[in-house]
Design a protein around this nucleic acid. Structure first.
Length: 461
RNA sequence: GGCUGGGUGGCAGAGUGGUCAUGCAGCGGACUGCAAAUCCGCCUACGCCGGUUCGAUUCCGACCCCAGCCUCCA
């Protein structure tokens, strides 16, 4: 079986094979650390975590790097607002990021480079671009000259002319061309800065990724990932810088971009303010449920985020875990990933198809008995594990889900037991009107009573 | 305004030139004192208009609508 991935640059699915056989290099644009991330940011982390897992299952060695942008004007503003030092602020939110994405079931990347740790590399790359005539200094700034790169615009599929036509920003007077972008900019004495050939200053946004990729992963990496909204200008500029600095070499062999999350028809974004943080969601929902919800759509399409989506995800996982428990909760160790599921993920990470496969496996498991059921449960779990799901003991998930229902219920367990006993007594006396009234009361309180052969039992609904 | 992508059943969301996505919700039946769970069945789909074709939701063209990007953004 072969892995096919959609590449933004070539505009289609292509067979993926690493440049160096058996070893994959993956770089994903991480967060600018100045606040808590929202669930849309979480989607990117989960999507590329899934890719990481699929690659690791397939290749002997995968190096996954995800950066922290820890120098940026928004960070400076946030630090000033909160009255804390910049490094304190960035450290706090870098840790918060790690916590948030861990809650979504992501594995830590192999490398987590920070921009502030790579100033010499950035300065060196800017110097190289200046020397090659791709960049120029002006009024303390260093700018990349887009006209020096005939291929500029190829990633986002727009021409320099298009960009000028749609320009909404005022063009700085020192730019030779309106689309030229900043590689280096001067800092005032109060602003953080580093000494450079162009005076004390700080890097532009895009150069860090180019410099860190070059240093940590090599000139040409296999896969570069990030959100769709990074395609332009961030990735376009990264590509221009790196390829111009490296004599035209491609920066990445595959460019992967995940789609956006929307809330009520609009993109969830910090600037629009229509965000819901991962922290807030994780307090109310199981992280695995959130992960399932994020993977419910194909990673390239827009996903409509809603409470209903979360509830659907919870119900699916509840069903899977209940079936696993009924089958003795077998482990997936040494169980191969079902072929149909592997095929779904190998087709550009088709998670909706993968979920359909899991539900089919679950249907078959439900019909099975004994050893056959155990075997099928193991297969279900092995498939789900590749998605980073169903990795906990079933009893753990079910108990935690129950606890969440319990805390949402108005009824205390004691009074529930009392009511259930009362109802059972009424049933014995064939006072069904009374029994049903109690059932209604419990139901209203979020409790479902089930009459089994061993007597009644109840659970949160 | 420019560029890119998309419009699938109540909702979410895959996919395909002619037999099924899948999940949730809903409806009917079996089972149950009644329910729940389970099982069986049902339901309404491919924005609009043309074209290609024996046949198009799927290919082509126009149109309408939506989203993303063009400014920090996953």
């Amino acid at each position: 079986m072969t892995l096919h991935l959609y590449d933004t640059l070539s505009g289609g699915k292509r067979l993926f094979e690493p440049l160096v056989p058996g070893h994959v290099t993956l770089y994903v644009c991480g967060p600018t650390v100045y606040n808590r991330i929202h669930i849309g940011n979480g989607r990117a982390a989960v999507v590329f975590d899934l890719l990481y897992r699929v690659l690791r299952a397939r290749y002997a060695s995968v190096t996954y790097a995800r950066n922290f942008t820890d120098i940026d004007d928004k960070i400076m503003a946030a630090a000033a607002r909160e009255g804390v030092a910049i490094d304190e602020l960035t450290e706090r939110y870098a840790q918060a990021y790690d916590e948030d994405v861990a809650a979504l079931g992501t594995l830590p990347p192999d490398l987590k480079p920070r921009a502030t740790g790579h100033l010499p590399e950035m300065i060196a790359m800017i110097e190289r671009l200046v020397a090659k005539g791709h960049a120029y200094a002006a009024e303390g700034h260093v700018l990349f000259a887009v006209e020096s790169d005939p291929a500029y615009g190829r990633l986002s599929k727009r021409s320099i002319e298009d960009m000028i036509a749609g320009a909404r920003v005022e063009v700085a007077p020192y730019k030779r061309h309106p689309a030229d972008f900043v590689l280096w900019k001067p800092s005032t004495p109060e602003q953080p800065g580093w000494d450079s050939p162009w005076g004390r200053g700080r890097p532009g946004w895009h150069i860090e990724c180019s410099a860190m990729i070059d240093k940590l992963l090599g000139r040409v990496i296999d896969i570069h990932g990030g959100g769709r909204d990074l395609t332009f200008p961030h990735h376009e500029n990264e590509l221009a810088q790196s390829s111009c600095a490296h004599g035209g070499a491609e920066l990445a062999r595959f460019w992967l971009h995940n789609g956006m999350l929307t809330m009520a028809g609009e993109k969830m974004s910090k600037s629009l303010g229509n965000i819901v943080t991962v922290q807030e969601l994780a307090a109310r929902h199981d992280g695995e449920v959130l992960r399932y919800a994020l993977l419910a759509a194909h990673y390239r399409s827009t996903l409509v985020w809603s409470e209903d989506l979360i509830e659907q995800a919870r119900k699916s996982l509840l069903r899977f875990y209940q079936l696993l428990e009924a089958a003795g909760d077998p482990s997936a160790d040494d169980v191969p990933v079902p072929e149909s599921l592997q095929a779904a993920l190998d087709d550009d990470l088709n998670t909706p198809e993968a979920f359909a496969v899991l539900h089919r496996l679950a249907d078959e498991l439900k019909q099975a008995h004994g050893d056959d059921a155990r075997r099928r449960a193991g297969a279900l779990r092995a498939g789900a594990r590749l998605l980073g799901l169903l990795e906990r003991p079933a009893a753990t998930f079910l108990a935690e889900d129950d606890a969440r229902r319990a805390s949402a219920s108005a009824l205390a367990p004691d009074s529930i037991d009392t009511l259930v006993k009362e109802r059972e007594a009424a049933r014995k006396a064939r006072d069904f009107a009374r029994a049903d009234a109690i059932r209604e009361e419990l139901f209203a309180g979020g409790i479902e009573v089930k009459d089994g052969v061993d007597g009644p039992s109840w659970s949160y609904r």
